[in-house]
Design a protein around this nucleic acid. Structure first.
Lengths: 347, 347
DNA sequence: CATAGGATCGTAAACGTTTACGGGACGCGT
DNA sequence: ACGCGTCCCGTAAACGTTTACGATCCTATG
């Protein structure tokens, strides 16, 4: 099966009619449409994507850029796979396909994105792990490619984004810890230039201020968002004179390494040091004591992100009223034992 | 910047010469080539992929199919991200790009692959998580799409594949456990129809036979390859009358859940039950006692897989002599404490 | 009967690129 | 002066599809 021409010859119908029949256009007899569809199915014909997108200037493909090299919060576990599930659930309704574009480690993400965009292989893009200032956003804006980013940035002018509610999370965490009597609260933030790290720390400072606690820079630990980083964070915590009684982790996976390091030192998590994590991570579910953390549905987030993106695409924007969408994605507190040992002991 | 035509007009050169200059064809003056490249860089021109691939019938894109729904060993981002790194390191040398094609959860993987292949959006495919009989292999063979699979299958006739050496791994594990005095050795295999599960169990049976140990089906536990599955495996282990003294896990992540369940029951991993895992998983690095496991380099595996694929592509096969390649990927034993408590205690 | 108009289909142009082919300019040897 | 080869470049066809436009046929209505 070569192309639509062979299919047309086989049916003894003109090529134009075949195309109209396949694409559901009105000017075609219902009976011939049946014939065409049957023949296409039988011969296994599927339209060549290059020809189609060359003609109509659209590819019906959405790209999700992935940076495996970056040490980011998203760079682990099933984050992207969970996200794609939600994305596809919405995109499929508009017959849009999703492909993941992994940026090679040795290539500059900006150049990679530029290359992919210029080749016009996707209609729109989703980027994540946005830096504090992110040139990719300027690039996409200037190239007039519809896009949405997971995570806001200083660069995102009136572009569309969804960001996790790190401000709310850290405020809630501090409130909770203070209510439990803690005053010296450490925080483990990412060492990379990802923007949510800044939001996280700003929220932390603001929450402390609200409770009349003076900000102590020595309680801010910058490590990678991994178990390794958690281990290092634990190590750093143990070095602090006048040791803090609580710690907030920006990524839950860090708890695994943290627990390990604390246990090595004879410090029992939850009893000697309260711990609060972020984003329920299945891998951390087996920790003892169970981790108090904040949770979200990756699938729902992906679905919302897809709709945010569609709203920026002229071809679909009539489905969605306001074009530029910004949203703070809420997270739900899942209480565990890791920050309530105090209470339990007091009872 | 629209297309090559505008670039040609801007340079006052014919469109054909511009194309030849950009593509490094010989029939073009070196000086004009410089001019063209400079102008292209300045105006930010990049060839439209649809036009190019329509003309030359090739896309220069390799697809990596991903099934997020399947409960498989590869079902984790880190696996694919590690793999893509290795794949890209080789593919980049031939100016080939890699895209990941995630199959939606609610779509049949076979139909999805069929759709992607028919649209001619990729030149070649890599599939993984091959089932015991896998229709995708027949599909790709019949469609004459070059492909390689990670994991052999009963369906793979003389197609190319790389498979992990599960046979060697399980034999080595059994040898080691027997040498430590174990006779009742359980095994946790995947519950899905993935082919490596069969290879794993065959190797297990064969190894037992070699040591004169009669095969006991009640020692075979089928669970998901996750922490959850490990937890369930631990639970199942505890139910077995005449409890086994050792267990081999097909996936290391399962050890986390297993440890948890054992600890809950007061059974100490390593002392009361020897454990051997497979494939070093960073998340499991913090287990205590440290896990004896088998390790490989995902990056190297990806690179080898890329070369295996290239060998099947007519356009690149002259680089690689034999077209159909099959390979068993070796794994290295990383001794830990989880299976040598006996020895340590004996000393 | 004439004609309007709807239903259905065929024709051909267009999308952006690559490449086979031919032609002009020039140098060189006879 | 002529032929020949080399170097460089322009022309135009081709890839597979969609779609605007026009043609044809049929029916209904005056």
């Amino acid at each position: 099966m070569k192309g639509i021409r062979q299919l047309a010859e086989h049916l003894d119908i003109s090529i134009g009619t075949v195309s109209r029949a396949l694409n559901g256009k009105p000017d075609v007899n219902e009976e011939t449409r049946k014939r065409v569809l049957a023949a296409a199915e039988e011969l296994g014909y599927v339209a060549n994507q290059s020809g189609r997108s060359l003609r109509q200037g659209t590819t019906n493909v959405i790209g999700l850029m992935i940076e495996s090299s970056k040490e980011t919060i998203e760079d682990s576990d099933n984050f992207f796979l969970g996200l794609t599930g939600g994305l596809q659930s919405v995109l499929a309704r508009h017959k849009l396909d999703l492909i993941m574009l992994p940026c090679p480690n040795d290539e500059d993400p900006y150049e990679y994105l530029k290359r992919m965009v210029a080749r016009r292989v996707v209609d729109a893009m989703i980027i994540s792990a946005t830096q504090r200032v992110d040139r990719r956003i300027d690039l996409l804006s200037k190239a007039k490619i519809p896009f949405a980013s997971l995570g806001r940035s200083l660069s995102s002018g009136n572009s569309s984004w969804i960001d996790l509610d790190f401000d709310g999370v850290v405020n809630c965490a501090v409130d909770r810890l203070v209510a439990h009597g803690h005053r010296r609260i450490a925080i483990a933030a990412p060492s990379s230039d990802i923007n949510l790290g800044y939001i996280f720390l700003d929220g932390y400072r603001h929450a402390l201020e609200r409770h009349g606690i003076t900000y102590d820079p020595s309680l801010v630990i910058r490590v990678k968002t991994s178990e390794q980083g958690g281990y290092q964070a634990g190590h750093a915590l143990l070095q602090i004179s006048n040791r803090p009684t609580a710690v907030i982790l920006i990524y839950e996976l860090m708890a695994i390494g943290l627990y390990r390091r604390l246990t090595e030192a004879g410090v029992i998590p939850g009893r000697d040091l309260a711990v609060i994590g972020f984003r329920e991570e299945p891998r951390a579910k087996f920790l003892q004591p169970t981790l108090t953390c904040f949770r979200m549905s990756l699938r729902d987030l992906g679905a919302e992100l897809a709709e945010t993106l569609l709203a920026t695409m002229p071809a679909y924007s009539h489905f969605y009223p306001n074009s530029a969408r910004n949203m703070i994605w809420p997270l739900k507190l899942i209480p565990g034992e890791s920050d309530s040992f105090h209470l339990m002991a007091a009872e």
